[in-house]
Computed example of a mutant assay.
Amino acid sequence: MRVTVIGFWGAYPAAEGATSCYLFEQDDFRLLVDCGSGGMSRLQKYIDPFQLDAVLISHYHQDHIADVGVLQYAWLVQNTLQDTNKKLSIYGHPFDTAKFNSLSHQYTEGKAYDPSETLSIGPFTVKFQETNHPVPCYGMAVSNGKHQVVYTADTSFSEAWIPFAEGADLLITDTNFYKGMDGTGPGHMTSEEAGALANKARVRELLLSHLPHFGEHDQLIKEAKERYEGLVSLAEEGWTWESQ
């Protein structure tokens, strides 16, 4: 399994960047997890978006879905140019009817997942964890049967994440605030909380993502390492993790 960071900013993309967007690959199957603002532009540096096999959405805030519409147009154009009739499955939760319905377009099909059940997408199985966020949002554990990557999506800290992330090979955390700040209102974690979660869940590696637009990002690593002794990385476009 290979995971590539396409977008990692919180709220809005910095120049030449993108918000939440991650590419999961296994056995030539390509799953895009979230499709935030700028994601389509940056994704094309790594793969042809028309070669995606599925998309999985954590929730319907714009920094996670803004480029879904752009992706839909791309599939419309390429199906027309190539005289094909391919349809892309976009998985989302059904708890916002209008937003879920928007996942369906001429060449995309919205498919509702039940967060209480395990979802199979190609070679991956996905389990869900409800997050602490102002709208319904689901983090996920993506497994290829041997290795597991946990993505918190947007959430403030909760003890429930510890058993959910237990032993993960890679933990990708929402790290939108620095040590000593309070992210409970907007529903985001601090660097210190990300490190504490990684430590308590005994994960093998920690990636700090959904990064803030203020402060020095290197400080996030230092603060996370105060609570976690394993490998800590800062998300950047093109950052890649691959199971061994």
Rank of each mutant, 00 (worst) to 15 (best):
His93Trp: 04
Phe124Ala: 06
Ala201Phe: 07
Thr4Asp: 05
Leu32Asp: 03
Gly180Phe: 08
Arg42Gly: 08
His213Asn: 14
Gly183Leu: 10
Asp28Thr: 09
Val142Trp: 05
Val150Cys: 00
Thr152Val: 06
Gly187His: 04
Tyr22Glu: 14
Arg204Phe: 01
Pro212Gln: 12
Trp241Gln: 10
Thr152Gly: 02
Leu31Met: 11
Ser143Met: 02
Leu56Ser: 01
Pro163Ser: 06
Phe29Ile: 04
Leu119Ala: 03
Pro94Asp: 00
Asp182Asn: 12
Leu81Arg: 15
Leu170Gln: 06
His133Glu: 06
Val55Ile: 12
Ser156Arg: 00
Thr19Glu: 03
Pro94Asn: 04
Ser158Asp: 11
Glu193Phe: 07
Met181His: 11
Lys179Pro: 07
Asp63Phe: 11
Arg204Asn: 08
Thr173Tyr: 00
Asp27Tyr: 11
Phe177Glu: 05
Ala141Cys: 01
Leu88Lys: 09
Ala160Tyr: 07
Gly183Gln: 08
Ala18Arg: 06
Ser102Phe: 08
Thr155Ala: 07
Ile65Val: 15
Cys35Glu: 10
Asn199Gln: 13
Pro115Ile: 08
Gly92Arg: 05
Ser209Glu: 01
Pro49Cys: 08
Ser158Ile: 02
His59Ser: 12
Ile90Trp: 04
Ile121Arg: 08
Val70Met: 08
Thr190Asn: 15
Lys87Pro: 05
Asp63Leu: 01
Glu25Gly: 10
Lys222Met: 07
Ile6Leu: 01
Gln62Trp: 14
Asp182Met: 03
Gly122Cys: 03
Glu205Ile: 09
Ala198Thr: 02
Gly92Val: 08
Asn144Pro: 11
Arg227Asp: 09
Asp114His: 03
Ala66Leu: 08
